[in-house]
Design a protein around this nucleic acid. Structure first.
Length: 319
DNA sequence: CACACGTCCTGGTAGC
DNA sequence: TGCTACCAGGACGTGT
């Protein structure tokens, strides 16, 4: 599952392999891959063709490539969803044949100083998408004083909060905001408008590291516990980033959610029935909202009712 | 056929 | 009472 570390790895790969290149052709093979683009597939292709990619930027799980040009307030915005990949390869015919992929959704051809290249958007489960989006200035934009387009966000991403690896994140404010939420702490961690980049996998890993059960009420946690939780999340994502970032060769930009870290180092996610690496108790799997949560019953005791959020409806008057 | 889950959307609620 | 911000849960989509 592409969460922050995987998306950052893709961003870095794009920064190294497609910047400065110009789009020569756009082939949308499945319209739904650009379903969020206002003008449809044809407009999508039209807006990209001839544009040069000038920067690769990420916030949370959103990723975008800035486009040059007169009206340069635009970006090619990508979200990988559950299974999206962006693959770069050299643009020779051989690569075309070898590179034909069962789940290829959109292909961009690029031209640059050292020959043609191909940027493929591949997505098995189709939750991902591409679009050309307008950049809009935002007060929460980005480092002041960098008067470039970096200070603006693509319109569909303006509601996305800064992520834990963003040097301009206001940690104290985030701790406060999390503790103000009247919901389960895991749900708050997954809320991209509070803090971005955390998905189901890293949420479970962070909660395990901080020894907090995800069903505890966010507003019942002490500030220091929330701080530890955020530290744990930043830590586990940094480790995953290091592990994933080293496993790609020079040209291919690849993410399938594994990033090498997935299988090896997860303490609880997907580990139901196995031993907790810290205490040896058997890891549990619970269902919530059609999603899975993995916890260690000893390290992360389930909260008593009084420590769970008071949900709408209150203590049911079930007469 | 249940299950994987990130984001968007809807309907409803709490609190002012 | 009316308004707003917030929150829970369902829909979506495809392959294993």
């Amino acid at each position: 599952m592409p969460e922050l570390p995987e998306v950052e790895t893709v961003r870095d790969g794009l920064a190294r392999h497609v910047l400065g290149r110009t789009v020569t052709d756009v082939e949308v093979r499945r319209d739904s891959s650009v379903r969020r683009h206002d003008g449809g597939p044809r407009d999508f292709a039209g807006r990209l063709t001839g544009r040069t990619l000038t920067a690769a930027v990420r916030r949370g799980k959103f990723l975008w490539l800035l486009l040059d040009g007169e009206d340069s307030g635009e970006a090619l915005l990508a979200h990988l969803g559950m299974s999206g990949q962006l693959l770069v390869r050299s643009g020779g015919e051989q690569a075309d044949v070898a590179g034909s992929h069962a789940h290829l959704r959109t292909r961009l051809r690029l031209d640059g100083p050292d020959g043609p290249r191909v940027l493929d958007f591949v997505d098995q489960r189709t939750f991902g998408h591409l679009m050309v989006a307008d950049l809009v200035p935002t007060p929460d934009g980005a480092p002041a004083g960098r008067g470039s387009a970096l200070a603006a966000l693509p319109a569909p991403a303006v509601h996305i909060a800064r992520d834990l690896l963003d040097p301009h994140l206001d940690r104290a404010a985030l701790v406060g905001a999390l503790r103000r939420r009247r919901t389960e702490v895991k749900r708050a961690l997954l809320d991209q408008t509070l803090v971005s980049g955390i998905g189901n996998i890293y949420a479970d890993e962070a909660l395990w590291r901080a020894q907090v059960h995800g069903r505890r009420a966010a507003d019942a946690l002490r500030p220091v516990q929330v701080g530890r939780l955020l530290d744990a999340a930043a830590e586990v994502m940094t480790e995953a980033l290091r592990a994933g970032g080293t496993s790609f060769d020079a040209l291919y930009v690849d993410v399938n959610g594994s990033s090498g870290y997935f299988d090896r180092s997860l303490a609880v996610y997907g580990q139901a029935g196995r031993a907790c690496p810290r205490c040896g108790a058997t890891v549990l799997r619970d269902s919530f909202m059609n999603r899975s949560s993995f916890t260690c019953p000893r390290c992360q005791p389930r909260p008593r009712a009084s420590a769970r959020p008071r949900l709408p409806g209150g203590p049911s008057p079930r007469t």
